[in-house]
Each structure stands twice: as structure tokens, then as C-alpha cells.
């Protein structure tokens, strides 16, 4: 599974971090960081993260 976040859209709401803390996090500067190719076992929570993004900036490929 591949995760792509459109960083031009991202406005640091952080809802993805709550939904999928294994994949999404904030760095020290408060900007979003994420695992680009997470384990497929995390699919449910990554899908949830994509659902709850207010900007709908998260895309899941494969």
C-alpha cells in the first residue's frame, strides 16, 4: 500500500494522526510527516485517516 499526501492541500488539522498514529505524525516544527509505504495490515486505519482528513488530501494507492 502506498500513501500520498497532497502537501499543497494539507492544513495540519491532524485528524489523520488520531486515526492512524502508526503512519501519520507531526514533526517538531508541527508539520505533517508520514510513512509513504506502510504495512498492508494498517489498511483499515489508513483508510480511516483518509476519510477524516478535512482537506481530503490523503490518497491511498494499491
Amino acid at each position: 500500500m502506498k500513501v500520498v499526501v497532497d502537501m499543497n492541500k494539507c492544513q495540519d488539522h491532524g485528524q489523520c494522526v488520531f486515526a492512524s498514529p502508526d503512519v501519520f505524525s507531526f514533526d517538531d516544527a508541527g508539520r505533517l510527516a508520514y510513512v509513504a509505504e506502510p504495512d498492508d495490515a494498517l489498511r483499515d486505519e489508513v483508510e480511516e485517516a483518509a476519510d477524516v482528513c478535512p482537506l481530503q488530501a490523503i490518497r491511498i494507492e494499491g
Binding site: 495540519d12 491532524g14 494522526v17 508541527g30
Partner: peptide, 9 residues
């Protein structure tokens, strides 16, 4: 700003 939002989180 963002730090306030992080505080709420």
C-alpha cells in the same frame, strides 16, 4: 494558530 490547535489536540 497551529500551536493553539496542537494544544487543544
Amino acid at each position: 494558530g497551529q500551536s493553539a490547535v496542537m494544544g487543544a489536540a
